[in-house]
Design a protein around this nucleic acid. Structure first.
Lengths: 119, 119
DNA sequence: TCGTCTCGTTACAGATGCGAAACGAATTCT
DNA sequence: AGAATTCGTTTCGCATCTGTAACGAGACGA
């Protein structure tokens, strides 16, 4: 991945504004901030992902993680898999549908960034 | 404002990931996506802002806008003002606290972008 | 084997979100 | 003046979020 261009605070606000308004108008499945962050984290950070680890990293309670996983698994954006090495744990895995969803969101963001320049 | 640098989809995801995780760990007042988009819109788009206009632009129902305003006014991030020209309408205005909040968020985003390069 | 710890989930109670519909107040039309 | 329209808000019923606490299942040391 190429280096991230420097981003000034004012540019960040304009970008967020464009993306969030665009997202609302496309009425994507409306995830809460926690649900979205959790989904994003599973796709962006290297595995393995467990409930306990996600709760710690994302500063959420374990039940909140469980419920977010329920929701995201219902949307087929993520999948639970038993951890064969320690059957108390589960491993949270990526899915095709989740990849597509995040890719669409990413394109939307890239497009919003482009529009900030070219109108 | 200087031109927005081009942003690739993969960079957008990495940026969103960094910002959302950082935001969760700072436990900012947790606004819903609609509340946050509404706040951002009032600060980024030129006034005047009415309930009806916000509802149309942000693809929300009018009651949802009213309730989001209640919440944001409670946090003192926004303020309602009577429209003297048409007393059926209200004008949504910016506040100092709201400016500070968004500035903090913007700094957090800029910092997240920086960290994606320099670790 | 028996206690203890850790894992994720479930049960509970409370807070908060949502849209549809009804509402009062202000404006505009006839 | 009186009717019709438009504004933001409120009410209603429902869905879903939250954290605390309790829980069963698996792992592990004594």
């Amino acid at each position: 991945m190429a280096a991230m261009p420097p981003l000034k605070p004012g540019q960040a606000l304009a970008l967020w504004h464009g993306v969030m308004v665009a997202a609302l108008n496309r009425s994507l499945p409306d995830l809460t901030a926690r649900q979205f962050a959790l989904c994003l984290h599973v796709y962006q950070a290297p595995p393995p992902h467990t409930v306990r680890g996600l709760a710690a990293t994302l500063n959420m309670s374990k039940p909140a993680v469980t419920r977010a996983l329920d929701r995201l698994e219902g949307l087929e954006f993520l999948r639970r898999k038993a951890d064969e090495a320690d059957r108390r744990s589960i491993l949270v895995q990526r899915t095709v549908k989740g990849s597509v969803f995040l890719r669409e969101f990413a394109d939307l963001a890239a497009e919003a960034a482009r529009k900030l320049n070219n109108g």
